[in-house]
């Protein structure tokens, strides 16, 4: 099946600042893809190019089978986009805002009000639908934004920083809503965020986007195994009390070929191994007469992945900042 988003060598620069640099990305139908990157990495620019709202300097963006820069109307018919700073018409009620968007999407007038009301219920704004949008809280605006995205029955929804500015409980609820909608309706979701944990909760695949470049894509296990293949598996075993003889314990394991290193720190034993040998380790420790309270195996989450990429990119970031500061003394334009 053809990918729903197909970006080829997409480039965009503002003056001397390169916002997006040769972006290649394919997103399949039905997946939740997380575009992860710090602020100013070019996520929003890439998204705007996918919707044909910004002209790319070079390269092509095929979204839902249409070229985004040549045929943006067709793309926008099929794609629901929620921008990062959501603004609604403050003088209209939430429902009226939603109805306006529904009408712009050429929905027939008959039954549109009930349909919109149902959509408000779906995103959990049923009680607030007749209040002016100016009274909405940030979380409610986010929900209204989602309702607007969904009301056009899109094939693909693009959410730009959807979790920005909502409290943790709200984030969790919001992400669950997205996930359940995706599952029930087979939508494709592309969401951008600089918040790793949010992305980690819902995304099937993530792309790490730094300084206009897509550094890596893949699901989390793939990413972590790619990155941390050399570092091995960390196993932490907590004993109920201090080991009787730490040195004997150490020497006992020193002969094992799978163990890279071992560390005894009070009642905690730290192993770094190349293979999956946790059961073997536990059995041996019990045989040695120690009691185990807890065993944990360290999983590499996005935090580590993210950090790892940023470690490699700190220099670039600094360079970029100096570019941003320069215009004060030079020409005014970016």
């Amino acid at each position: 099946m053809k990918p729903i988003i197909d970006l080829k060598n997409l480039c965009k620069s503002y003056g001397s600042h390169i916002a997006v640099d040769k972006l290649n990305l394919q997103i399949e139908r039905g997946e939740i893809f997380g575009l992860l990157g710090p602020n100013g990495a070019g996520k929003t620019t890439s998204i705007l190019m996918m919707l044909g709202l910004t002209e790319p300097d070079s390269g092509s963006a095929i979204v839902c089978g249409h070229d985004a820069s040549r045929d943006p109307i067709e793309v926008k018919r099929k794609v629901g986009y929620m921008p990062d700073n959501l603004g609604f018409y403050p003088q209209l009620t939430g429902l009226e805002n939603l109805l306006y968007i529904a009408r712009l999407n050429a929905m027939p007038e008959k039954g549109i009000a009930e349909y919109a009301r149902g959509m408000m219920e779906l995103v959990g704004l049923g009680a607030a639908s007749d209040k002016p949008a100016s009274t909405y809280s940030r979380g409610m605006k986010q929900r209204l934004g989602l309702a607007e995205v969904l009301i056009k029955a899109p094939e693909l929804i693009i959410l730009d920083e959807p979790t920005l500015g909502i409290d943790p409980a709200g984030v969790k609820e919001f992400l669950e809503l997205i996930k359940s909608l995706q599952r029930e309706q087979g939508l494709t979701v592309l969401l951008s965020s600089h918040h790793l944990h949010h992305v980690q909760q819902v995304c099937d695949r993530v792309g790490i986007f730094v300084e206009g470049k897509l550094l890596a894509t893949g699901d989390l296990p793939t990413l972590s195994s790619e990155l941390f293949a050399s570092t091995g598996i960390e196993i932490l075993i907590q004993l109920t009390r201090l080991p009787k003889d730490a040195d004997a314990l150490k020497s006992n394991f020193s002969g094992w070929p799978e163990i890279n290193s071992m560390n005894v720190n009070g009642d905690r034993l730290q192993f770094n191994t190349t293979g999956e040998i946790t059961p073997k380790l536990i059995r041996r420790i019990i045989e040695l007469g120690e009691d185990i309270r807890a065993v944990s195996q360290k999983q590499y989450g996005l935090d580590e992945i993210y950090e790892k990429y940023f470690e490699n990119n700190t220099n670039i970031t600094l360079d970029n900042e100096s570019i941003k500061r320069k215009p004060l003394f030079g020409n005014r334009r970016k």
Binding site: L53, E74, G80, Y81, F88, P90, N105, E148
Partner: peptide, 17 residues
Amino acid sequence: SEQNSGSLTRLLAQPIY
């Protein structure tokens, strides 16, 4: 005013010229 309030982006994301 539409641009400052952010509704312009939303409006332009709809299938309109």
